[in-house]
Design a protein around this nucleic acid. Structure first.
Lengths: 364, 364
DNA sequence: CTGTTAGCGCATTCAG
DNA sequence: CTGAATGCGCTAACAG
């Protein structure tokens, strides 16, 4: 029924091995022979049997890209960039040559699904795996991840982190590209402080995520350095630390509700910093629904600089992360097309983007 | 080095066949034996060899979901919903049982890549393929697609369309879920007309896409019905038809630039309809940058009702598409968990969402 | 440069 | 209910 390599060999009057060689292109074959084989392939409309090929070669051309939330452009941009480096542009023939099959897996932020996907990819003998976005800080899950990643690496799968900090015991990880979330968070809050803000509410992401923690730490560093948590080294014991922070998922609704809550806790806040741009959008809606103006009454800031942020009204002050560039680099790293940074770890800078949603607070 | 089924069999003191049977669970096995085997699996940390399994069984557990732009939540929402139906919730053990590997492939809207991905999935003997979003109308590509899909279906791959109209000769497609883009587009423009708008600019998507064409057709139907293209049946020959339409990609920049162009062509337009919400965001930014107010000077409307649209300032009038529900249904269809609609074709309704970005035009 | 020979690891006949 | 035998389609040594 289905045409096999042997059929192609017969039609081209060569051995199966030769056909395999021209298809994989990793071995010298006479031009005339190759010609004949390729014609037979086209004539017969032959499609390589992936499983058989992977079994024999003990490797596959599958590359997995894990994301926390595929509906979030933050991940979509990185994944798309990685995929374009991995999948190659295609040759327009639709015939598919030595391309890898770059494939995105949506964990939904669930640790169990993350592990399950890794097992599934291990089962497929994936050539590489790219893990994007922040990690869960739960030690049990972290240990399980290290163990699983070690096994994958052991089986020849290349592991790359993108937008995720290195993990302890993560020798299996070929390269980690981490965003400077802490520095970005710090500079953002410094910006607000320099405008004159003193009471700043913070809508944080979900607890136990590295991204959440780092951005929040940056914020608090800036607050503390400005003496806004009490002049003494009292640091995180100041009541405002908890009072002006609300945690929630990375979505608009969380931003909306958390902002309402912050406004209730302290009607005198003059600025809201959100865990990311999506959350900031919800925060802005909440502020307007309270009859307040942005930025005259309350300033708003986000993080990531997603494409829609510049179009918000007013345009959103945020921290730009080079998501596309990072994703592309992760893709290249996964393909072995780029040498890993020294120590396997690179920190990617975050740039403050000051726009219309932040301004000095009203006097009085 | 790597542990195989035979190793597990040896440790459990059974034959390889038995191990295979408990793992696949599709054959009676004594409870005590099963117990022993599962323990051996855990002890040895055995992971099934996917390629070998697929080769022997002539099918794989891979399910592909094709999207045009993974960075666009329009696709992300559908893909995530489909994936959650296909991948299952996972059992929290990370051990991975009979789960399918639901996987998202980003075509970037390129026909060549679309075909390449299908070939790659065919090569992997994918269990099912879900194609999301509008299709290219180029007849050559359509023919190539039908042929490729026929071959996939022939090899046992189930094909499902989600948010994509059926194609001619697409008997291979098990089910098509199409959005009522035309009806939605019509109702949206009817809404504007009922508010009193007469000169309405349209920022269309890329040419030759079904989604673009259907939405535009709906718009023009409404315009024509209201006599805004001349009272006679002159229909699409009225100069405004072309003058007040600008095509471009489905992104914010296109919305921005096209709107500038429309405003230049006819400073008297009182409303801008965008091909989708993302484009509408760019359109809104352009309008504001021209010193005009929304909706007092110019109304703006989008399509899709993506999550951010309700948070825009003012909130965006748009047409709601049940993306999550459609994606989930497509996922179930792909898994054979739901019976296809009669004729394999279902049209999904689009609901008009009137919000603050549209209002009656200024008098005078 | 090309053909021959062996498996890769598993699912599935068949017997028992 | 369980075991033994066979082959899925291909790649990778080896020879030539």
């Amino acid at each position: 029924m289905t045409v096999t390599l042997a059929d192609v060999a017969a039609r081209a009057r060569v051995s199966p091995a030769t056909v395999s060689r021209v298809l994989n292109g990793n071995y010298p074959v006479a031009a005339s022979t190759r010609e004949r084989v390729l014609r037979a392939v086209d004539d017969l409309d032959y499609v390589l049997n992936g499983p058989a090929s992977s079994l024999a070669a003990a490797t596959s051309d599958l590359v997995g890209i894990l994301v926390n939330d595929i509906a979030d452009p933050f991940f979509g941009i990185m994944a798309g960039a990685a995929q374009s480096e991995i999948g190659g542009p295609g040759d327009g023939s639709g015939r598919a040559g030595g391309e890898k099959l770059a494939v995105v897996c949506n964990t939904g932020g669930s640790p169990a699904r993350e592990l399950t996907y890794l097992t599934l990819l291990q089962r497929q003998r994936a050539a590489a795996v790219v893990l994007t976005g922040g990690a869960l800080e739960d030690p049990v899950h972290q240990a399980a991840m290290s163990a699983k990643l070690a096994k994958l690496a052991d089986a020849g799968t290349r592991i790359v982190f993108c937008g995720r900090p290195p993990i302890p015991g993560g020798d299996a990880v070929a390269a980690s590209l981490a965003f400077d979330n802490r520095g970005g968070g710090r500079r953002l809050t410094e910006h607000l402080i320099s405008l004159g803000h003193r009471r700043i509410g913070y809508v944080a992401g979900p607890r136990e995520r590295t991204t959440t923690r780092h951005r929040l730490e940056g914020h608090r560093e800036a607050m503390r350095a400005a003496g806004l948590y009490g002049e003494e080294g009292g640091a995180d014991t100041h009541p405002d630390v908890e009072r002006l922070t609300v945690h929630g998922p990375y979505d608009r609704r969380s931003g909306y509700e958390a902002t309402l809550e912050l406004l209730r806790r302290d009607p005198g806040v003059t600025a809201i910093v959100a865990a990311n741009d999506t959350v900031a959008l919800g925060a802005g809606a909440a502020i307007r629904d309270q009859g307040l103006r942005i930025p005259q009454d309350v300033s708003v800031a986000g993080f990531d600089d997603l494409p829609f942020s510049v179009d918000a009204a007013p345009a959103l002050t945020t921290v730009r992360l080079p998501l596309f560039e990072a994703g592309a680099r992760a893709g290249r790293l996964a393909m072995g097309k780029e040498t890993p940074p020294p120590g396997g770890i690179a920190t990617i800078a975050a740039e403050l983007m000051v726009r219309g949603s932040t301004a000095p607070p009203r006097v009085g």
